[in-house]
Computed example of a mutant assay.
Amino acid sequence: MQSYPPLAQTLVDSLRAEALAEPARAIAFQGAPGAYSHQAVRETFPQGLPLPCYSFEDALAAVSDGQAHAAVIPVENSLHGRVADVHFLLPESGLSITGEHYVKVEHCLLGAPGARLSDVREAMSHPQALGQCRKRLKALGIKPVTHADTAAAAAEVAGTGDTAVAAVASALAGSLYGCALLMEGLQDADHNRTRFLILERTPRDPAEIEGRAKTSLSFEVKNVPAALFKALGGFATNGVNITRLESHLRGGAFVAAEFLIDIEGRPTDPAVTRALDELAFHSKWVRILGCYPMVPPELATT
C-alpha cells in the first residue's frame, strides 16, 4: 500500500493541492517533502510548485498525464552508483530529458524530538542513503534499516517518538518534521553528489541550447560477436566523448543487452551524426532520450 507517515502526509496533501491547481508550474518528484529530490526541484525550478509522488513511476506519469510540467528524477550517485529501476523507466516513459542537475548530498542523522546520539540503535533510510553512510553507521554501532524514502523516514521517526531509532535524511527533512539534529555530514565522503535528470513531454531543440550540450540515448546491440565494440566504435573514430555507459538485461533473456549512454554534443553535430549512423548499423534499435545543456564537470562537483 502506498502511504506516507502522518506528519509527511499532511505536507504531501498541502503541496499536491497547490501543484495540481497549477499544472503548468507543477514539478513532480519521488518521495516525501524534504527528500533530496524535493531539494533538487527547489534548486532547478525556484518558481515551481513541488508535486510529491510516492514512486518514480507516479512522478513520470504525472508529467505524461499533464498533471505536472516536468519531473526531476535521480539517476546516479557518486558513492553508491545508479539508482535502481530508473534505467528501465526513462526509456519507457515516453518523456524527453531536457536538463541535468547535481545535488550535493549532505546526510544528517535525525532523531525523535529530545533524542541524543547515545540513544540511537537503528537508523532508517532509503537504501541509497544507507549505502552512502555505510562506514560511518558501522563505526557508530548503528544498525541500518531500509525504508522507502529518506524524508519519510524522518517523518516516521519524529512521529513515533522512539529515541532509539533515527533517520538518515537531509537537514531540510529534519526542519520540516521537527527532528533532533544528532549529526551532520554523515556521508562516507565529501564528494557525495547525486545527478538528477529533468524530464518533460516536449524535447528541447538542440539548436536552441547555448554552450556545451549532452545527449542521452538507449539502444540494443545485435547478438553477434564484438557487437558493443562495433556499435561504439563510431564515437571513438569521430572524437565524440561518452560520459556514461550502463547496461541491463530485459525480459529474463541472457542474450543481448540494452544500453544507456550519455555523450557530449548534439545529434545534429556532424561528428555525432556519423557516430549515431554507425551505432544504428550495429544495433537492433536506437532511441534518443533527449538533448540538453551539459553541466560542466567542474561545476558538478562543487
Rank of each mutant, 00 (worst) to 15 (best):
P23Y: 12
E92T: 08
E106F: 01
T301Y: 02
G141A: 06
Q67K: 15
R42C: 14
P33E: 01
I263V: 13
A171K: 13
A21C: 02
A148L: 12
D149T: 10
L109M: 09
H282M: 12
D65P: 00
T268K: 09
E298H: 15
T273V: 09
Q128Y: 06
T268C: 10
I261F: 01
I73Y: 10
T146Q: 11
A71G: 02
D149F: 08
A62Q: 07
L181G: 00
P267R: 00
P46Q: 05
A180D: 07
T160E: 14
D162C: 07
A129C: 13
A280D: 05
G178L: 04
R201C: 04
T237A: 09
A226M: 13
S118C: 04
L232F: 15
T150W: 02
Y177A: 02
F29L: 09
S125H: 02
T215A: 10
E184Y: 01
G66H: 07
T237W: 10
P127T: 11
Q9P: 11
A207G: 04
K143Y: 07
V295P: 01
L276R: 09
A61M: 13
T98L: 03
L172R: 15
N238D: 12
A280Q: 06
Q30F: 00
F56V: 13
G234E: 07
Q132S: 14
G114K: 06
K222G: 08
G66A: 03
Q2I: 10
G114C: 05
D85G: 08
